[in-house]
Design a protein around this nucleic acid. Structure first.
Lengths: 174, 174
DNA sequence: GGGTTCCTACTCGGATAACGTATGTCCGAGTAAATCTGG
DNA sequence: CCAGATTTACTCGGACATACGTTATCCGAGTAGGAACCC
């Protein structure tokens, strides 16, 4: 049981993007510089987040990434599933059937109890992740984090964010 | 997030070993045959379970594996941690510090909020796994599983278990 | 001077290698049972 | 016939190759901005 390295980067980048104002975007290279990561590799993860409709990408100069929806509607579960895949961590290979004595398939119509137990635990994990909204992460960071690092992050975002010409989404559509 | 293939084998084997009576043992080769696995590779996982004090191994002829303690005192969490390691699935690389602007280390004395959130979810996962006792798995299998496969498993165990010398319950059956 | 056209520079996106971990296999150390031998 | 040492066969344990997945990198497609040019 081990999560990929990209999950951490994805969460940090998503949290950072939650600080950009309006429909401005932030280039992936800036995000990579922000966390000392390889820009080329981070793009892959950001692309996965885009495919999962968590981020939006704007090509061309002054382009970049932006949250696809409000931070209140993004959970850590969304990010983890986007990066690690939606498959359950425990995959039942039905090895109970591979024994030497072959039994009729009708004996295995019921799901494997071990698989059910593991999936039950995993549902608890995902439920806990679904409770954690990105907006809460950012709020906690602003409230309990060190003011110096918070200010530095805000300054970095303000320096690298590129306002859009209201191409796709106007100011606000609430 | 993906669990290794060996976790499934380890749980199945441990559940099977819960059916052997007294202090009898069952060879690893028999367990491998029971689930159609590679014997050489299964030994590695069984060895990990032994190192975690979940199983006991008896060398020599008529040797094999046996539960180190009652099935009521073995949880799925014990097995998963023995195979996958006790490290948390989410490893915080502290990438927040790797930014271009260097800030004094005193700004990072507080733990990373993202790491705290992920660990909180993982605690929920482990707590759910700790609630699942091996005895419950076996009981559910005996109660709700198909009688044919259950009988076949019992017959396989009875055929391959090897009573030990100090056993006070001798059973001679071929 | 204004509008149009072309060019450039910057962005994301996917295809392509290198590394590390998990998987799979092999042979050696150890032990208890069975056997052989001597009394 | 019984006791003891020896042989033996079976077990686990760790060391050695292999395969897959993740990590890391590069180059190409696309777009918007800016500059040059013509009217």
């Amino acid at each position: 049981m081990k999560l990929g390295e990209g999950v951490e980067a994805a969460i940090h980048c998503t949290a950072t993007l939650a600080s950009v104002e309006g429909n401005s975007t932030m280039p992936g290279a800036a995000l990579a510089e922000c966390f000392g990561l390889s820009a080329s590799y981070l793009l892959k993860h950001l692309n996965m987040l885009t495919a999962a409709s968590i981020l939006e990408s704007v090509p061309g100069p002054a382009g970049g990434y932006r949250l696809a929806r409000a931070a209140e509607r993004i959970t850590l579960l969304d990010i983890v599933l986007a990066i690690e895949g939606r498959e359950p961590a425990f995959r039942c290979g039905e090895i109970r059937r591979n024994g030497p004595v072959k039994i009729d398939a009708s004996a295995y119509v019921k799901p494997c109890g071990i698989n059910a137990a593991m999936l039950k635990a995993e549902r608890a994990y995902r439920a806990a992740l679904a409770e954690l909204k990105l907006s809460d992460i950012v709020a906690d960071y602003a409230a309990e984090g060190d003011p110096r690092s918070f200010a530095a992050s805000c300054a970095f975002v303000a320096r690298h964010q590129r306002p859009q010409k209201s191409s796709s989404t106007p100011q606000k559509q609430m």
